[in-house]
Design a protein around this nucleic acid. Structure first.
Lengths: 151, 151
DNA sequence: TCTTGATCTCAAGTTAACTTGAGAAATTAT
DNA sequence: ATAATTTCTCAAGTTAACTTGAGATCAAGA
């Protein structure tokens, strides 16, 4: 800890409390997720609410959301000003919806996978697993340039 | 379609039937996911069972599993020989387990997120969301060099 | 005051999962 | 037999999400 609560938290403080690497926190700044002020010497000074922002980012990422998506949601909030409980509740609710959707998608795909074990289908054209509907259900990994809209 | 069923499927056939790009199928080969034979001219010739392999890969990816994980599971199977129904059932069952785990993780995180809305916690040290237990629950995105073991 | 230690900036490297491009053979269609 | 496709190989580019390294400056304790 810096010991000087007068000027807010240092990047090292944030790192220590969130477990994020200092470099990651700086990286997030370039992506508009946090926007710290600077002290006289040019060092970043964070508000306590930034802890909450970062915690939200970490949670959302663990749930499989991309930084871009997350940034969009955080953009809805006051930039520097502290997050109110209402703000937090609002974005949390939005995410709850997304999480629910994702769980639903996974459940459906699981069930269809079960179905496919029995059906022994080789023809993908009629395989449950490759209905376009399901594709949207869970977007997983990597640079899939086609069809990777944001759902 | 090639029209000559004598020699198996061409890479273009696979592409047409799975929707995967030709380049992606070649890429998968370098990662040990498919291992086609070659005809006289050096062109790849796939078995029908490779359609099933690729379909499995696509499904698993949609569920958020990495190619590496998928490759490990497929390595359990006979390389060139056709997948038996039993083989398919076995890996599907394994994946079912993983899917279940993922759903469980998402559900727990959702509930904890709900809890956090109410608690208004700013101290991450005691926030439900950042219990190490939960971290393992869902590994989402990106090169997280630390702590990204394989679960 | 001086010496570590923390930060700063900026460029470049890394992993995953592919795509794009170039130049050259093999296949297929006419 | 030709032209038009398809494939082949291999190198290099792309996106996301960060990390690593270099050289310089700021801050804090002995």
């Amino acid at each position: 800890m810096t010991g000087k609560p007068s000027q807010g938290l240092s990047i090292g403080d944030l790192s220590a409390r969130t477990g994020l690497a200092v470099s990651a926190i700086r990286f997030y700044e370039t992506h508009g997720i946090v926007a710290p002020l600077r002290n006289a010497g040019g060092h970043r000074r964070y508000a306590r609410s930034d802890l909450r922002r970062l915690s939200f980012v970490m949670a959302a990422q663990a749930l499989g959301f991309s930084l871009r998506e997350i940034a969009v949601h955080l953009a809805d909030l006051p930039a520097h000003k502290a997050l109110s409980k209402a703000d937090w509740a609002r974005i949390s609710a939005t995410f709850r919806t997304k999480i629910d959707a994702r769980i639903t998608g996974l459940t459906q795909l699981r069930d269809k996978l079960d179905g496919c074990i029995g059906c022994g289908c080789l023809s993908l054209t009629q395989c449950h697993l490759y209905n376009p509907d399901d594709q949207a259900a869970a977007q997983g990994a990597g640079p899939r340039y086609l069809q990777t809209q944001q759902g």
